[in-house]
Simulated assay, not measured.
Amino acid sequence: MSVQESLAVSTEASPTGAVTSVTAVDFVHRNPILASAVAWEWRKQGSSIALGEIHTSWSSFILQDPLEAASWIALDAFSDDLVPLPLKVRIISASGRNCIVLGKLRAAQRYALSAEGAVAILDKEATAAEIPCQITDVVRGVARSLPRRTSIGTAITDREIQILELYARRQALTASTLAKTLGIRDDTVRGHLARGRRKLAAAGLRCSTRVELANALQEIGYSHTDDQWSAVGRW
């Protein structure tokens, strides 16, 4: 068994009371039709890697009982919500789980997600029948894993990443409206914006305006471009 497989093994009792090893993958994807099709194909193929829970939103995934989450998480790269992709990968990795990202990403994003702990990025076009095979190849260690990288973004805190990204993406017109969306104080949002910008500026990135901030986050791989969002039908 490879190191990757050993990390993915959980235990459960068999009907006879013996403990058996089970490798499972939770699937988190914004498209419920694709998610259902992948689940059907996965079970039809009878893989030795079990399919765990299907989630069509990040909030659904994060609210589940941590003890019920699988050791491997296949994560959609383009769920449009209040948690940026690098932060999702960081959260999964920090929980001791392995994250496989699904979606066409730029080189800078591959570096950033690797630094945050992603094990693999599956960015080739694939059908619902092919996706289970691609994921199970990663879990078994057959597919090549991402080399671990370093990134400027890892020095930015969770909340700073979230607020910088949401502000740059114009998810709120002002810091005040963003504070209301997140349920926190205006001063808290402004403080995180200021500290995050200082860290980016210290790395030589221009980020004084909202446009410069968006460009800086895209440059270090912590934000999708407008073209990427358009390609997946957001706009």
Rank of each mutant, 00 (worst) to 15 (best):
M1I: 12
E5D: 04
V9S: 02
V9E: 01
T11L: 08
A13Y: 04
A13E: 08
V19A: 15
S21N: 09
S21G: 06
T23Q: 01
F27D: 01
N31D: 15
P32C: 13
V38C: 11
V38F: 04
A39K: 15
W40G: 14
E41W: 13
R43V: 15
Q45Y: 15
A50C: 12
G52C: 10
G52M: 13
H55W: 00
S59K: 05
S59N: 15
S59V: 14
I62C: 04
D65I: 00
E68R: 01
A69I: 09
A69L: 14
A70M: 01
W72S: 10
A74Y: 04
A77C: 09
A77G: 13
S79E: 13
S79M: 15
L85D: 00
P86Y: 01
L87C: 00
V89S: 02
S93Q: 14
S95V: 04
N98D: 10
K104F: 02
R106W: 05
A108W: 10
A112F: 10
A112T: 12
L113N: 11
S114F: 07
A115I: 02
E116R: 01
G117Y: 11
A118V: 07
E125C: 07
A129Q: 11
Q134I: 04
I135W: 02
I135Y: 02
D137E: 11
V138N: 09
V138P: 08
R140D: 03
A143T: 15
R144P: 05
T150Y: 02
T150Q: 10
T150S: 10
S151D: 05
I156W: 00
I156C: 00
T157L: 01
T157P: 00
Q162I: 00
Y167N: 06
Y167M: 09
Q171C: 05
A172Y: 07
A175Y: 04
A175T: 09
T177V: 07
A179N: 08
T181L: 12
T181N: 11
G183E: 06
I184S: 06
D187E: 13
L193A: 07
A194G: 07
K199S: 12
A201I: 11
A202H: 03
A202M: 08
G204V: 05
C207T: 11
S208R: 12
A214G: 10
N215T: 12
A216T: 03
Q218V: 06
Q218A: 08
I220T: 12
G221N: 03
Y222H: 09
H224N: 13
D226Y: 11
W229S: 05
V232G: 06
V232N: 08
R234F: 07
